[in-house]
Simulated scan of single mutants.
Amino acid sequence: MDWKIFLTIFVSVFIAELGDKTQLATMLFAADKAVSKTTVFLAASAALVVASAIGVIAGSLLSEYINEKYLHYIAGMGFIAIGAYTLYNA
Results as ranks from 00 to 15, higher is better:
residue 80 I to G: 00
residue 25 A to F: 10
residue 41 F to C: 04
residue 27 M to E: 08
residue 55 G to S: 08
residue 32 D to P: 04
residue 53 A to F: 02
residue 42 L to Y: 08
residue 47 A to R: 01
residue 24 L to H: 03
residue 9 I to Q: 06
residue 6 F to H: 03
residue 58 A to G: 15
residue 41 F to M: 09
residue 52 S to Q: 08
residue 38 T to I: 14
residue 31 A to D: 10
residue 32 D to A: 08
residue 14 F to K: 03
residue 72 H to W: 15
residue 68 E to W: 10
residue 85 Y to K: 07
residue 57 I to T: 11
residue 55 G to K: 04
residue 14 F to W: 08
residue 17 E to W: 07
residue 17 E to C: 09
residue 6 F to W: 03
residue 62 L to I: 14
residue 54 I to F: 05
residue 24 L to M: 13
residue 37 K to I: 15
residue 21 K to Y: 06
residue 14 F to A: 07
residue 34 A to I: 11
residue 39 T to G: 00
residue 16 A to H: 09
residue 43 A to R: 04
residue 9 I to M: 14
residue 35 V to C: 05
residue 66 I to W: 01
residue 25 A to I: 06
residue 69 K to W: 14
residue 33 K to C: 05
residue 64 E to W: 13
residue 23 Q to I: 03
residue 43 A to Q: 06
residue 40 V to N: 01
residue 14 F to Y: 11
residue 43 A to G: 04
residue 1 M to E: 04
residue 25 A to E: 08
residue 19 G to A: 11
residue 46 A to G: 05
residue 86 T to N: 06
residue 63 S to G: 11
residue 70 Y to G: 03
residue 8 T to V: 13
residue 52 S to I: 06
residue 28 L to W: 00
residue 21 K to H: 06
residue 2 D to W: 01
residue 46 A to V: 07
residue 70 Y to M: 13
residue 72 H to K: 13
residue 30 A to H: 01
residue 14 F to G: 05
residue 49 V to T: 07
residue 79 F to W: 09
residue 88 Y to N: 07
residue 21 K to C: 08
residue 17 E to R: 11
residue 67 N to A: 13
residue 78 G to Q: 08
residue 82 I to M: 12
residue 35 V to G: 04
residue 28 L to A: 02
residue 81 A to V: 04
residue 76 G to L: 14
residue 76 G to K: 10
residue 87 L to W: 11
residue 12 S to F: 15
residue 16 A to P: 11
residue 31 A to E: 09
residue 6 F to R: 06
residue 34 A to K: 15
residue 70 Y to F: 15
residue 89 N to F: 12
residue 81 A to I: 07
residue 45 S to F: 15
residue 62 L to T: 11
residue 2 D to P: 05
residue 7 L to M: 10
residue 21 K to Q: 10
residue 63 S to I: 10
residue 62 L to F: 12
residue 12 S to L: 14
residue 42 L to P: 01
residue 5 I to D: 08
residue 3 W to T: 12
residue 42 L to S: 03
residue 7 L to H: 05
residue 11 V to C: 10
residue 90 A to T: 07
residue 42 L to H: 05
residue 25 A to C: 07
residue 18 L to V: 00
residue 44 A to C: 06
residue 87 L to I: 15
residue 87 L to S: 06
residue 51 A to N: 12
residue 2 D to T: 02
residue 16 A to Y: 12
residue 37 K to C: 14
residue 46 A to W: 03
residue 44 A to V: 02
residue 4 K to P: 00
residue 62 L to K: 04
residue 8 T to G: 10
residue 22 T to K: 01
residue 2 D to Y: 01
residue 84 A to G: 05
residue 38 T to H: 13
residue 18 L to C: 02
residue 82 I to E: 12
residue 80 I to F: 05
residue 55 G to C: 09
residue 15 I to R: 03
residue 15 I to N: 01
residue 26 T to F: 04
residue 65 Y to W: 12
residue 26 T to R: 02
residue 59 G to C: 09
residue 15 I to F: 12
residue 36 S to H: 01
residue 82 I to V: 15
residue 30 A to M: 01
residue 77 M to L: 15
residue 30 A to I: 02
residue 89 N to M: 10
residue 12 S to H: 08
